[in-house]
Simulated scan of single mutants.
Amino acid sequence: MDSPSVLLASLLVCLVMVMGIVAPQVEARTFFVFGDSLVDNGNNNYLATSARANMPPYGIDFPTHIPTGRFSNGLSIPDVFSWVSNLFSLLSLSHVISIQCERIGAEEYTLPYLSPALTGQRLLVGANFASAGIGILNDTGIQFVNIIRMFAQFQFFQQYQLRLTALVGADRAQQIVKNALVLITLGGNDFVNNYYLVPYSARSRQFSLPDYVRYLISQYKKILQRLYELGARRVIVTGTGPMGCAPAELAQKTVNGQCEPNLQRASALYNPQLIQMIKSLNSEIGSDVFIAANTLKMQQDVINNPQKYGFVTSKIACCGQGPFNGLGLCTAISNVCADREIYVFWDNFHPTERGNRVLVQQIMSGSTDYMYPMNLSTIMAIDSRT
């Protein structure tokens, strides 16, 4: 993990690379996060729930080397995003910066909304409202009992805006929210911890898989519409990864390490329909508010060819127990790999910090095969001129 001084030095090198021209600095872009455990930075630490990552060795590679509530060995997807978005808000020539420079940005991470430290000027950095275990549907994750479902995340977002208004005034608060970058990650739990949680689950008896996917998409559209009503104007929407390829599924449902077919079919049905829904929603709004990240393709590429991305394995989790280290959560008594850089998965479901970085790099610079209608570099370049 690079120190702030190393990051600053790297930033200066990047500025020199941009034709020797340094753009005037502007206010850093605020960042908001909604969703599940892939992006929860510690909200669930403040809740009485089993969906928590507050025990070692979680956080082993975080700057503090202690658990923070992130389901990772180190930085989460929002942490990497925070650096990127804030760097690009400071550079009017962001669209010509090389990918090596794109990982550098703010020294401050977006705090969980429930953190007591989220006060005063820290509100200007943004807030993370995500909660492990939640889904698009309110009945997803009922086994975790006390989690922040989407309607509650939006209630907290409204509270945040009132607090921001008290700090900077109504007009500036509205502008900050409008100019913010937003990340939302939902859907995986609606399959893993709902439809396929147990044989003959309530939802699987109610819906065939194709009908369930259509229902999820219809409900997700309502969530995105509500987010727009609350002021969001630049929203990265991630799909699900190849859910059947997670170490948990390999350990429980396969014997030879092949991806579990039912969840793979769910991913294959869900992700294209999500992209189509986002296209339709943008058309209704008349602006490219929502940006679809095809995380299914991104992660499937890595899983199919881990060596191409510098990994050794995409099947075995770095931390866990049982086949593929895929049984149960990562705990102090789990097997833990020595080199986290060469593993795609940290625990039975969640990527390593390096896995998160690869994902964000694709979101940052990926082609339209990965990002629709544009990648984050293009978004930042467009927004820096408006």
Rank of each mutant, 00 (worst) to 15 (best):
S3A: 10
S5K: 13
S10I: 00
V13R: 14
C14I: 04
L15T: 00
A23T: 13
E27M: 08
T30I: 00
N43F: 01
N44R: 08
A48K: 03
S50G: 08
M55Y: 07
P63A: 03
N73C: 10
P78Q: 01
H95W: 08
V96L: 15
I99Q: 10
C101Y: 14
L118K: 02
L124D: 00
L124E: 00
V125R: 15
G126L: 03
S131H: 00
Q143P: 02
N146V: 06
M150Q: 14
F151M: 07
Q159K: 05
Y160Q: 09
A170W: 15
A173F: 12
A173N: 06
A180Q: 14
L181A: 04
I184F: 08
T185Y: 14
G187K: 07
N194H: 09
S208Y: 08
D211Q: 10
I217Q: 03
Y220A: 05
E229M: 09
E229D: 09
G231V: 02
R233L: 11
R233G: 12
T240H: 09
M243D: 03
A248C: 09
N256S: 09
N262I: 09
N262Y: 12
N282Q: 10
E284S: 04
I285C: 08
I285V: 13
N294I: 07
Q299C: 07
G310I: 15
F311T: 05
S314G: 15
S314N: 11
C319D: 04
N335F: 03
V344E: 10
F349A: 06
Q362I: 06
S365D: 00
L376H: 08
D383M: 10
